[in-house]
Amino acid sequence: MDIGELAKKLAEKYGYHVYMIERYLELFGKEGTIEFLEANEKGLNPVIRCNTLKISVESLRNRLVKKGFVLRKVPWIDYAFQVIKSPFSLGSTTEYLLGYYYVHRGMGSLLPVHALDPKPGEIIIDAAAAPGGKTSQMAQLMKNKGVILAVDISRERMKSLRSNLSRLGVENVIAYRMDARDLPKFDIKVDKILLDAPCTGEGLIPIDKSRKKSRLIEDIKYCSTLQFSMLTALLKCLKKEGILVYSTCSIAPEENELVIHRVLERFPLSVEKMDLKDGLPGFTEFFGYKVRDEIREARRFYPHIHGTEGFFICKLRLREELNDNI
C-alpha cells in the first residue's frame, strides 16, 4: 500500500484529517504512527500536583488515599501523582477547595517548569500563563519568594488564573492581561522566562478527541508565526545569561524545532541540556527542513512512548543582552 492510501485508511479508521496522518507517517513511520494513534485513543490519567505552599506531599497523599483515591507517583517529579482511580470529581474535594493540589491533564505539563528550575528570589516572566498551572508550580518551587510576572491575553482565562492562584495561596505574582509581545515596553530584564506557547494542541488528542479534526494545516503556520514573534519580543526582556524555556503541547516540528531554529539564527542564544530523565531528542530534519544540530538537546514526549500528552520542551540561554533595535 502506498503512503497516500495508508494515510487515507488510517485517517478514516481513527477519525483524523488525512494531512495529519501523512505527517505522522513521515515523522514516525508506519508502526510508530499506529502506536501513536492507538495511545491517543486510550486517554491519559489526570495528574494532581501537591501544592507544597500549603501542605506536605505525605499528608495530602494520606488524606486522599483514605478517601479512596488510588494514586501513583509521577516518575520524575516527587510532588505529583497520577490519579488511577478517583471516587469523587477531582475539582470538588475539600482538599482541592482548600488549595492543596492543582489538577493537570497529563504529566507532560509538569516538565517545562522542572526544566526552568525557578529559584526563590528570582524574577521570572510566565508569558502565556493562564489558567496558571505552571505559574503556581513555579510559585511553590520559589516558596512564594521573588516575583513572577504572569501574562495572558485572554480575559476569560485570566479570571481562572486569578482564582487558581488565590485558591493555592500564591502571593508572589503580578498578573497582566496583555499581549506578551508588548512586554518589552516595560523595559525590565528578568532572570528567567517561560513561554508555554499558544499552539495547535495536537499533543492533547488523548484528552480532547475533538482536536483530531479541529485544526487545519494553515493553523500550524499561523501558530508558528505567532510563536516566533512572541519569542523574539520576550528575548528582549531577558538578562545576559538568562534562561528561556519554550514549550508547546504540539508535536508539529514547525511549531517547535523550526521556531527554535529561527531564533537561533537571529539571536545570540545557545540550546542548553536539560535535567529531564526522559524524552526523545528534538528533530534536526523533517519535511525537507534541516535545522541546527544543537536542537537535538530539546526534548519530545509522546503518549505511546512516555505516557504523557504530546509535548515539546527546549531550554535556551541568552549569551548577550539584546537592545531594542534588534
Binding site: I123, V147, E171, N172, I174, Y176, K185, F186, I188
Partner: peptide, 21 residues
C-alpha cells in the same frame, strides 16, 4: 519585591491583579 515591579511598570500598564487578595 512584587510591589517594586508594580512601581516600575504601572506607568506603562496597570496589572490585572497582584499579590494575595
Amino acid at each position: 519585591e512584587v510591589y517594586n515591579i508594580l512601581d516600575k511598570t504601572k506607568k506603562v500598564r496597570m496589572p490585572y491583579y497582584l499579590g494575595l487578595f
